[in-house]
Design a protein around this nucleic acid. Structure first.
Lengths: 216, 216
DNA sequence: TTGACAACATACTCAGTAGTATGTTCATAT
DNA sequence: ATATGAACATACTACTGAGTATGTTGTCAA
């Protein structure tokens, strides 16, 4: 049983979806700057015309991939974030599902990462800026799911970190890290993936000061 | 002749050094693919001619920046790694100095990061491949400083992680993370930076299963 | 049957960029 | 004094790649 089945299939029926998947794969493999529209078209077995019919520019395509990546995260975690739970248990749940999503939608999440990087570097034109700011805002809202749980857990004496902003940054680096080095091996089982997820989440929660007994 | 090439720190007064610094700043700001040789030249107040007189290609320039970044790390940490110390204390020392270097030589370390990324993506031509492999090997040797300390500390019951490879990956992501989000603020003091370093190192060591009392 | 439009493909333009070929200047050795 | 080469600048070439303008094909509504 896949952990995130229907999320990935969110827009499967849209004609744009196939292009998004190809673009995500290309951007993941070579990065935004080194990926040409022709690369994406070649992967689709099509030509530029198809892509420019659905997207106005390379940046537009990129932001669409970013948006879809963030949407998958939101759709998956929002209901969990709204549950009434003990804060540390909720943080563990959110972190676990986040890492699962990183593995399940790796290409898209890599694009999200690069989008944040591009934003931090300010490598955007003025018009792009506005669209980009909206995307980053979406990401901020997502981050808030975790931040609230972190603050609540700290207030309850279940976590122990100094600066929330730093703690949040470092925690996300940990949880996002598999998008860089994880490659699914042939013959890999769900149990293998789950073991990976568990180790990453354990590392993150301990890093935030959770005691061992409380996160197992 | 040793199989391990000697690490020779680059002299500040070499004519190539100024170019390396400008290149590192440009690569940090825009990434390898989006940085043109003219960009680097413009930052230097020079023209291409100067750069191509000292470096045979854009890739050659990039690898030189990478190499210098790794050399600075090696020169700084190698003597520490060779000390006889309690493993956990040594790991803490190495981690602390590593993070300090991330802040102090951020632009170069960002290039090292991108170099590893490019290597993981296999985005290199056959000739580049050889030079790249040598660079990655240097990075592997550096990583071994930490790995040995981690293994020794675990054997002594001072750490508690499942898989060494995963633990190492996630730990480095944590320690490297400030190259992405750290920006020196005006009026920032050494104490501010040290507080940042301490929080990151604490997070990393706790993540690996170190008990709170043992790392303070 | 035909018009209209969506969904592409084809064939271009043009700006940017890696790399090269060829000056030019200046210090230093002889 | 002059030859020489290092350290650049200038002025190119060749090519890639984003974006556009213009076909072509199938579908569907009236």
């Amino acid at each position: 049983m896949d952990t995130v089945p229907d999320i990935v299939a969110l827009n499967e029926h849209e004609p744009r979806f196939e292009i998004l998947e190809a673009a995500a794969a290309c951007f993941e493999a070579r990065g935004f700057a080194s990926t040409s529209i022709d690369d994406v078209a070649r992967r689709l077995g099509s030509t530029k015309g198809r892509i420019y019919h659905h997207f106005s520019s390379k940046t537009d395509l990129f932001t669409a991939v970013y948006r879809h990546g963030m949407e998958m995260l939101h759709v998956h975690l929002q209901p969990l974030a709204e549950r009434e739970m003990e804060p540390l248990a909720k943080l563990k749940l959110l972190a676990t599902e986040h890492v699962r999503m990183m593995l399940a939608t790796r290409a898209f999440q890599r694009v999200v990462w690069e989008g944040v990087e591009l934003h931090l570097r300010g490598a955007t034109t003025p018009e792009q800026r506005e669209a980009f700011d909206a995307l980053i805002a979406t990401r901020e809202r997502y981050s808030a799911y975790f931040r609230q749980a972190e603050e609540a857990a700290k207030a309850a004496g279940l976590l122990d970190y100094e600066n929330l902003s730093i703690a949040n940054q470092v925690m996300f680096m940990t949880l996002n890290s598999p998008i860089f080095w994880y490659k699914p091996r042939p013959g890999e089982t769900d149990a293998d993936r789950e073991a990976l997820v568990r180790q990453i989440v354990t590392y993150a929660l301990r890093g935030l000061g959770a005691r061992k007994e409380l996160i197992e």
